[in-house]
């Protein structure tokens, strides 16, 4: 089997770590929470302490529990939105790129329209038409967000597909008589995997932002805890002004961390696609140990003086012969 040679740069490892941590939190967060996020039985406005790690709200709710519980809704919605948007953009992008002609014109027009419409106002409009009951449904919110987030990916995938379409192996498939949809599915799509992955990360990141924003301006159900609603309540209760930083900082930091993790992972994908970014395959330590310049400059091939005479060295053989 093919061995995947994933780059092991610190960036990617860190990104993987952060992302894995939050994914884990999505699954077990609600079970870890020491209290119910709705429980108002504690003293209000407690600063962080051993008992309440992140303090309490002015309604007397445990912020640590809210953060843990809120992770699930935030990330599930983002994943749903990301997956659906990526699926949509793949469908649109690959068909447009491969089929060309009128199909391409139509689909490109559609994605350009969606690109041109500002996403957030559209989201707000669509969302305000939703029945209030369905606003607590992660799936429905995710679908709505995905509607505004697929167009960018579709354009990227279309461009990639168009460059693949003229490659010889696609022509070879046509020569043997392969059907079009099969070519798209089995020949084109696998070559788009790195781009797809990158597009998925991007849309997940976008969806977190979109969902948190919707919640923050109060357009999602307040009965579902997520990091956006936490910010909504903190804002509503004037937390930033009254110095209750522990109320809005935890959800903010979590959002930032997820974003960082996903971006770092994206670097990894870039390096995977473009090995030249991998800094010549030499780690910083290897470079230092050999006295090589830290950065390789164009037009200055580094010279490595052999530290130990290699037995296989040609000079050794030829000189020995003399």
């Amino acid at each position: 089997m093919k061995t995947l040679n994933l780059p092991r740069s610190p960036k990617v490892v860190l990104g993987l770590g952060i992302t894995a941590f939050f994914l884990l939190l999505t699954i077990i967060g609600p079970y870890l929470a020491p209290f119910s996020p709705d429980d108002t039985s504690f003293a209000p406005n407690l600063t962080p302490s051993w008992h309440h790690w992140f303090g309490t709200t002015s309604l007397g709710q445990d912020i640590f529990s809210q953060t843990l519980v809120g992770a699930r809704a935030t990330i599930v919605v983002a994943l749903v939105a990301g997956l659906v948007a990526t699926a949509l953009s793949t469908l649109v992008g690959v068909s447009a790129g491969y089929l060309g002609g009128f199909t391409d014109d139509g689909l490109s027009l559609m994605s350009n329209v969606f690109l041109a419409i500002p996403g957030l106002p559209l989201l707000i409009v669509i969302d305000s038409y939703l029945p209030v009951g369905s606003r607590s449904n992660a799936l429905i919110i995710g679908l709505v967000i995905s509607l505004t987030g697929w167009a960018w990916g579709a354009r990227v995938l279309r461009a990639q597909t168009m460059s693949l379409r003229n490659r010889d192996f696609i022509e070879a498939s046509r020569i043997i008589g392969e059907r079009r949809w099969r070519i798209m599915l089995t020949e084109v799509a696998p070559n788009l995997l790195p781009v797809l992955a990158s597009s998925l990360l991007f849309t997940v990141l976008y969806s977190i932002g979109a969902y948190v924003t919707l919640a923050y301006i109060g357009l999602t159900s307040s009965s579902v805890w997520n990091w956006g609603t936490m910010l909504f309540w903190a804002q509503a209760n004037n937390a930033p002004l009254s110095g209750e930083w522990y109320w809005f900082v935890p959800p903010g930091v979590c959002i930032a961390l997820v974003g960082t993790g996903l971006s770092l992972l994206n670097f990894g994908i870039d390096e995977f696609i473009n090995p030249r970014l991998r800094e010549s395959g030499l780690t910083a330590r290897q470079r230092r140990r050999r006295g090589l310049p830290r950065r390789v400059r164009l037009g200055l091939t580094p010279v490595l003086r052999p530290v130990v005479a290699k037995a296989s060295g040609p000079a050794a053989t030829s000189k020995a012969a003399s």
């Binding site: 030249r276 010549s280 030499l282 390789v296 037009g299 091939t301 010279v303 060295g313």
Partner: peptide, 16 residues
């Protein structure tokens, strides 16, 4: 030739 003109890019290394 790109080696002795030092035009090679990493990961190439002149080793002697």
């Amino acid at each position: 030739v790109y080696g002795f003109t030092r035009l090679l890019r990493a990961p190439a290394l002149i080793t002697g």
